[in-house]
Design a protein around this nucleic acid. Structure first.
Length: 429
RNA sequence: GUGGUCGUAGCUCAAUGGUAGAGCUCCAGAUUGUGAUUCUGGUUGUUGCGGGUUCGAGCCCCGUCGAUCACCCCA
């Protein structure tokens, strides 16, 4: 039994975990670049005041905060948006608008861990700064959809639940609800599906509203509401509106959102939200003390819930399996059948590697059978046998099980050419 | 931060308060130049940790750490 364990809420990434993580990273990065986003990164640690300024003092309960040796009050970042706002407002003149930026990295929250929620998690963030139109709202929703599709998660597996906070601010203005109650009201709406109806009714009563009125209003908000018109036209033209379901209960907590808000949900397993985001037009002004006012919108997707969803979605397994085979395997394995030929075998290993081929071999003398087993375990497509027949070399196709004798000097060319061909023959003999 | 359940080998799990086990994995051999299967042998535990009750604790009690579930929160 190991003396040391991971700190509560933190994870190890063993090779198979790391390969899966890299698959997720690569997919995020690939799709974001397809959309013209550029990658940035901020510091893992920021002044605690940055987060307090954005969200208020009460969030320190969930902050991973501490004092450094210089007496500074600092926090591991619980999210990236404040850093993004700080960076973007500091140098916004250096970049043409709109700024389409994405980021992938760890975040930390001091909470009780459970499935789908650890203290350290990795987020993909995509944001568009300097554009106030619903065109950027649509671009972000489209990116979220395409990311899901790229993972092999299909329309029957997920949905974008989307709303707009202005739907509710207009409602509250119509009902003459004082502004100091708006935040509390949005918190009630956020919980309306999970809370007991009588509790919700009581809370609404305190600010002069009834559950019946809220419910009937919610039911009236659908895709025909004029506030979604531009967004809908945009996404319909892209063929992506079918992934969107208008849902007025989506308000995204008590954060800084000012307009469109959305969350990505799985449809089959009742997991937590896979991703969420929206428009936050006032955050840059807040962070920069009003020196820079940039309309912005964005969303974040975490690796933990996504990983659970991937593992539960059959359609997502193909991409993962393909990726794991290339991450954790090799293309060719050099078998040293006769230790007297180790020198030319090593020369071939290096020449193949120089040619870009993934190659492995036994570091010490092993029986040929063991070496072929190792080749099998590493999912090699070809084995190259260096033994008594040298300067001839046996090149064996481990999939079709055919082998041929080739002059040693032709091996590099033969392997690189053969790897260009599709895999043929029985995968399992 | 609050409450419930759980914690035994690398993994999945057994063991009436009475000598800590099985399967899988891993390593080696059967097999001296070809991958599977099979067979044989082998490594691994202060039963999460620390106290207590008892002639005797993996088992009962208390604490603590961790996992998990529900709250909370979800920026």
């Amino acid at each position: 039994m190991a003396t040391f364990r991971t700190v509560k809420g933190f994870r190890d990434f063993f090779p198979e975990d790391c390969a899966l993580r890299n698959y997720i990273f690569d997919t995020w990065r690939q799709v974001a670049r397809r959309y013209g986003f550029v990658e940035y990164e901020g510091p893992l640690v920021e002044s605690t005041d940055l987060y307090k300024k954005k969200s208020g003092d009460e969030i320190t309960a969930q902050l991973f905060c501490f004092e450094d040796k210089g007496g500074r009050d600092i926090s591991l970042r619980p999210e990236v948006t404040p850093s993004l706002a700080r960076m973007a407002t500091a140098r916004h003149r250096d970049y043409k608008k709109p700024m389409k930026w994405f980021q992938i990295g760890p975040c930390f929250r001091y909470e009780e861990p459970q499935e789908g929620r650890s203290r350290e998690f990795i987020q993909f963030n995509a944001d568009i700064l300097g554009d106030a139109s619903q065109g950027s709202d649509a671009e972000l929703v489209a990116l979220a959809v395409d990311v899901m599709l790229a993972f092999g998660i299909q329309s029957e597996d997920f949905v974008i639940r989307l709303s707009n906070r202005q739907v509710w601010t207009h409602y509250l203005e119509d009902r003459k609800v004082p502004q100091e109650h708006w935040t509390a009201f949005l918190a009630i709406i956020d919980k309306i599906e999970r809370a007991k109806p009588e509790d919700t009714a009581e809370k609404l009563g305190k600010i002069g509203l009834t559950l019946e009125d809220v419910r009937s209003f919610m039911a009236s908000v659908d895709g025909n509401h004029p506030i979604f018109a531009a967004l809908r036209a945009d996404l319909e033209a892209r063929g992506l509106w079918r992934y969107v379901r208008i849902d007025a209960t989506i308000v995204r907590g008590l954060a800084y959102y000012t307009g469109m808000v959305f969350e990505v949900f799985d449809l089959k397993h009742g997991l937590r939200a896979v991703a969420g985001g929206g428009r936050y037009d006032k955050l840059c002004a807040l962070i920069s003390d009003s020196s820079v006012d940039m309309p912005s919108a964005g969303f974040a997707m975490g690796d933990v819930v996504l990983g659970i969803l991937l593992s539960k979605t059959p359609g997502a397994q193909v991409g993962i399996t393909d990726y794991l085979n290339t991450q954790m395997g090799v293309e060719a394995y050099v078998v040293v059948a006769d230790e007297a030929q180790r020198a030319p075998a090593l020369a071939a290993v290096q020449a193949l590697r120089a040619a870009g081929v993934r190659v492995d071999f036994s570091l010490n003398a092993q029986k040929v059978g063991k070496q072929f087993q190792a080749a099998e375990n590493l999912k090699a497509r070809f084995a190259l046998v260096y033994g008594a027949e040298y300067p001839q070399v046996q090149m064996k196709n481990l999939v079709s099980r055919e082998q041929q004798l080739l002059p040693a000097e032709q091996i590099i060319h033969a392997v690189t050419e053969a790897l260009k061909l599709p895999v043929t023959g029985p995968l399992i003999a």
